[in-house]
Design a protein around this nucleic acid. Structure first.
Length: 410
RNA sequence: CGGGGUAUGGCGCAGUUGGCUAGCGCGCCGCGUUUGGGACGCGGAGGCCGCAGGUUCGAGUCCUGCUACCCCGACCA
C-alpha cells in the first residue's frame, strides 16, 4: 500500500488535495496537474465504470479520440485563435505544422463522424469517451477540482431531428441523475439552468453544493432545480415558473453539463446526411460532459471529517481496511487467514500488514476512509472473533469470521 | 492577467543587527525494547538554503532580475 503522511503539504489549502495527498491517492506534479497513485486510480476507475455503465444504458458507444489535434479543424469553426479560446496549449510538429493539445473534442469527433454518417439510416449515433483534457487555465485551484490536465467523460449525440434530439437530451438528464445517485451525491446535486448558445436559451449544468465550488446557484429545493447566477434574472425566474422567495443562494461545483448545438457545428464542419426524400440535412448535435476527476474532488469535499476521507461504498478503492495489531504470530496468522477468506469471497481488501503501531494503523484507516475497518488483535483472537467498524459510524462490533463475510457480502 | 503572500534534506518548520561545520520535528536505514489511537533508547544517511546576477573580508540572511507555488479577483468542465 502507498504511504500516508502526517503533515499536509504546505502548498495545498483545498481540503480535497490535502486529504488525497496525505492519504496517498494523488501526487502533485505542478499546479493543476496531478498524478493518480494506485489508490487514486482505483477511485477514478470506479467512477468511470459507473459512468460507463450508465452511458451504455442509453446507447452510448465508447471510443477514444486523440490528444493531439490538427489546427485546420479548429480554424474552420473559428475556435483556434487565442483571442477566442484562451486555454489552448499549442505546439508544432517537426515540419512546422501547428497542432493543439485537446481541450475539447467537439470538432474532431464531429469531423470524424463524416466518415460514418451519410444516410438517415446511420442516425442516431451516440458516442462517448473518457479523455484527458488539457486546458491552459490562468489559474488552477482547489486541488483536483480545477486542473490544467484532467479526465472528462464527454458524450456526443448525433440526431436526425430536433425532436429526436430533445428526447435524447431528456434521457441524458435522467441518466445523469442516476450517475450522481450512484456516486452518492444526488441529494446535493441540482440540475441547473445556465447560459445556452446560439440554439437554445439555456444549457443544463449539474451543480453539487460544495464550498470549494466556483459557481453561485439559486436552488429551489422542493422542485429540485437551480438557476446559475449567470442567468439569474427576474425574467428567467418567471419564465421557469419559479418563485424568488423559494430560491436559496448556494456555492456549488459544476460536475456535469449538457448542451445543445443544433446544427451549427455540423454545418461548419460539413456533417450532413441524406434524408428519405433525398434532401441533404445537417445533423443535430448535443454534447454532454462529466468531469470525472473533478467529481472525485467534490466527493472528497462532501464526504470527509476531521480524521480523513469517508468514501461512499460505490467508489471506494477497496471495501475493507484490514489491520493486524501487534506482531504476535497468532494474530498475524489469523489476519492472513481472514484476508484470504475475504479475497476468496470477492470482497476487496486493503491489508495493512506492515510493522506499525496500532495508533498508526487505526489513524490510517480513518484517513484513507474505506467503508469498513476490520481489526484483528490479541483481544479479538482470544475471543475467536474480529472487530468490525464502519467508517461512518463510531460503533465497533465483535463478530465471527463467518458473520463478517455474511455482513460484507451484501 | 491585476492584487497579496511564500520558497531552507522526502514532508512540516526554525535560522537574531550579515559571522564559525545550516538546525529541529516527522519520515528513512541499522540494532534492541515496545504493540488497541501516530512508542522509546542508541547509532546512521540525507541540503548548490528556488534560479541568475550583484554588494561585502564574509550572504540562507542585504540588493536587482527571473521562476515556481498558494490565496483573493477576473475567467473557465
Amino acid at each position: 500500500m502507498s504511504k500516508t503522511r502526517k503533515d499536509a503539504p504546505a502548498d495545498e489549502t483545498a481540503k480535497n488535495a490535502q486529504l488525497l495527498i496525505k492519504a496517498g491517492f494523488i501526487h502533485k506534479e505542478m499546479a493543476g496537474v496531478y498524478a493518480y497513485l494506485p489508490l487514486g486510480l482505483k477511485v477514478v476507475e470506479n467512477i468511470k465504470q459507473i459512468v460507463r455503465e450508465e452511458m451504455n444504458a442509453i446507447g452510448g458507444q465508447e471510443l477514444i479520440m486523440t490528444g493531439l489535434q490538427a489546427q485546420e479543424l479548429w480554424l474552420s469553426t473559428d475556435r483556434w485563435d487565442d483571442e477566442l479560446v484562451d486555454i489552448w496549449f499549442k505546439t508544432k510538429l517537426k515540419n512546422g505544422a501547428d497542432v493543439g493539445l485537446a481541450w475539447s473534442h467537439e470538432e474532431p469527433i464531429t469531423n470524424m463522424m463524416k466518415n460514418h454518417v451519410s444516410s438517415y439510416r446511420d442516425l442516431p449515433s451516440y458516442v462517448y469517451q473518457f479523455q484527458t483534457k488539457m486546458r491552459n487555465e490562468t489559474r488552477a485551484k482547489s486541488g483536483i477540482m480545477r486542473c490544467r490536465e484532467f479526465v472528462m467523460k464527454d458524450l456526443y449525440s448525433y440526431s436526425l431531428t430536433e425532436k429526436d434530439h430533445n428526447k435524447y437530451y431528456q434521457k441524458v438528464m435522467t441518466c445523469y441523475h442516476k450517475i450522481f445517485e450512484r456516486v452518492g451525491l444526488d441529494h446535493i446535486t441540482y440540475p441547473t439552468f445556465a447560459s445556452g448558445g446560439a440554439f437554445t436559451q439555456f444549457s443544463h449544468e449539474f451543480q453539487t453544493i460544495c464550498d470549494a465550488g466556483e459557481d453561485i446557484i439559486y436552488v429551489d429545493e422542493a422542485k429540485n432545480i437551480a438557476i446559475n447566477k449567470e442567468v439569474f434574472t427576474d425574467e428567467v425566474i418567471a419564465q421557469l415558473g419559479l418563485n424568488k422567495t423559494d430560491l436559496v443562494e448556494k456555492k456549488a461545483a459544476e460536475v456535469g453539463n449538457i448542451f445543445s448545438f443544433g446544427s451549427t457545428k455540423s454545418e461548419q464542419l460539413g456533417l450532413y446526411f441524406d434524408d428519405k426524400d433525398g434532401s441533404q440535412k445537417p445533423v443535430i448535435l448535443g454534447s454532454y460532459g462529466i468531469g470525472v476527476t473533478r467529481l472525485m474532488g467534490v466527493i472528497v469535499e462532501a464526504f470527509s471529517d476531521e480524521k480523513g476521507i469517508v468514501w461512499p461504498e460505490n467508489i471506494a478503492p477497496y471495501k475493507v481496511y484490514l489491520a493486524a495489531l501487534g506482531e504476535d504470530a497468532e494474530v498475524t496468522e489469523a489476519a492472513n487467514n481472514l484476508y484470504d477468506k475475504l479475497e476468496a469471497a470477492g470482497i476487496s481488501v486493503l491489508y495493512d500488514d506492515l510493522e506499525a503501531h496500532p495508533g498508526e494503523k487505526l489513524n490510517d484507516a480513518d484517513l484513507i476512509g474505506l467503508p469498513y475497518r476490520v481489526v484483528v488483535s490479541k483481544k479479538t483472537v482470544s475471543e475467536g472473533k474480529v472487530e468490525l467498524k464502519a467508517r461512518n459510524s463510531e460503533e465497533t462490533t465483535l463478530v465471527s469470521a463467518d458473520e463478517l463475510l455474511a455482513k460484507l457480502k451484501v
